[in-house]
Design a protein around this nucleic acid. Sequence first.
DNA 1: TAAGTGTATTAATCCAATTAATACACTAAA
DNA 2: TTTAGTGTATTAATTGGATTAATACACTTA
Lengths: 152, 152
Amino acid sequence: MFTHIYARNYIFDIERSRGESMILLDYRDKRPLYEQMVEKLERLIAGGGLEPLTRMPSVRSLAMELSVNPNTVQRAYAQLEQDGYLYTVSGRGSFVTAESEWKESRQAKALEQWREMTRQALEAGLPEDKMAAELHEIYGESARHGGGEQGV
Amino acid sequence: MFTHIYARNYIFDIERSRGESMILLDYRDKRPLYEQMVEKLERLIAGGGLEPLTRMPSVRSLAMELSVNPNTVQRAYAQLEQDGYLYTVSGRGSFVTAESEWKESRQAKALEQWREMTRQALEAGLPEDKMAAELHEIYGESARHGGGEQGV
DNA sequence: TAAGTGTATTAATCCAATTAATACACTAAA
DNA sequence: TTTAGTGTATTAATTGGATTAATACACTTA
């Protein structure tokens, strides 16, 4: 019934047998470990590096690989689930969600933060026409540098 | 030469003699004291509550009034100076700057943060036309509610 | 010189965030 | 039913940055 899931998970076993890992932590980085993990895994998923429905390594195995406490991995996974990148089935594992799942919540979050900044710009007295020009500038720039792509 | 400054400072002496203070700190507020002070003083200045060139109370006197350490006031003043709301002359005091001074730096800061959020919106895949509509929405809303004002 | 001003340096304090330890609960398969 | 895997909850330990305080220094004016 779930054989395809286990089959997909096989890639992790291969990687691990080679001594490689999905992600690497940087101990010189000041940020907390779980935050680094979230960032790297988000990039991996949003960048298409992991197929939807792929099973993630278990919290214990990834913790072992990275030499951190399982709770640290758990925390990262919880955050990723919160952001819509993963879903979890207790006793079975955590799985990558389809793009449509996380894309929407990512955009909603980005939009809300953007709105807040825009209100502040308004309060600071920045005029609408200037902001419109800035907007077009930023979007236009990306279009010139090989635009059309989206995501990280 | 600087008599007008001392004259203006007189208002603080009057307030203090009445047992009042420019600002009040809230000890239930979780934020640090200096941050509260910065916020309240920013509002006061940006809202026109203090004339340009007005001399602020000395770090020691305001510290005494608010029952905090002088360094705490000093830190708030330093931040306000950083943000362009005050300027300081060693041995003489801290003074409120003209609106033109802080308005510019406030706008520059707001714009930079806004740009960053806009780039993130772009990365998340939000389309330009939607953002343009949102922008107009936010600006239009303020215009409908007695627009034209600016600043806090 | 004295009394006011801001500033720099250093230390004490504290507390929130992070990580770890441990036990619990669910799932699937032998 | 048992075992070995999974995620989860709770509680405690740690620690490091932020905040505040203590103190001494430096500038300005009268």
